[in-house]
């Protein structure tokens, strides 16, 4: 698995565990996991999570839902064919 795919795989795992979340919550979870399991989550170090999530949304891996005014919400798109 390439570095980019690994990051996406880890982020999907985190997002799946959170259900639906805004970026602040995702960042907090990434930080906590990097501290508790540094080896596993090292790939997410220094990673621009917003850019990565936008890329994943463009690839159809996650949904990026915009409220009328406010920060977007992210959730895993599970029903891909």
């Amino acid at each position: 698995m390439g570095e980019g795919d690994k990051k996406k795989h880890l982020l999907l795992e985190i997002l799946r565990s959170l259900g639906e979340a805004k970026l602040a919550r995702i960042q907090e979870e990434v930080e906590a996991r990097r501290l508790s399991e540094p080896e596993k989550y090292e790939a997410l170090t220094g990673c621009n999570l917003q850019d990565l999530l936008i890329e994943m949304a463009e690839e159809g891996l996650v949904e990026r839902i915009f409220p009328e005014w406010g920060a977007p919400v992210y959730r895993v798109r599970e029903n891909r064919t």
């Binding site: 805004k22 602040a24 995702i26």
Partner: peptide, 24 residues
């Protein structure tokens, strides 16, 4: 605890106020 991610703050300020600043 983080209330709003810095990059979300930057994006909202850019989109609604034309305020350009940096996050990260």
């Amino acid at each position: 605890r983080s209330l709003v991610a810095p990059s979300d703050v930057a994006e909202l300020l850019d989109r609604h106020y034309n305020i350009m600043l940096r996050s990260g």
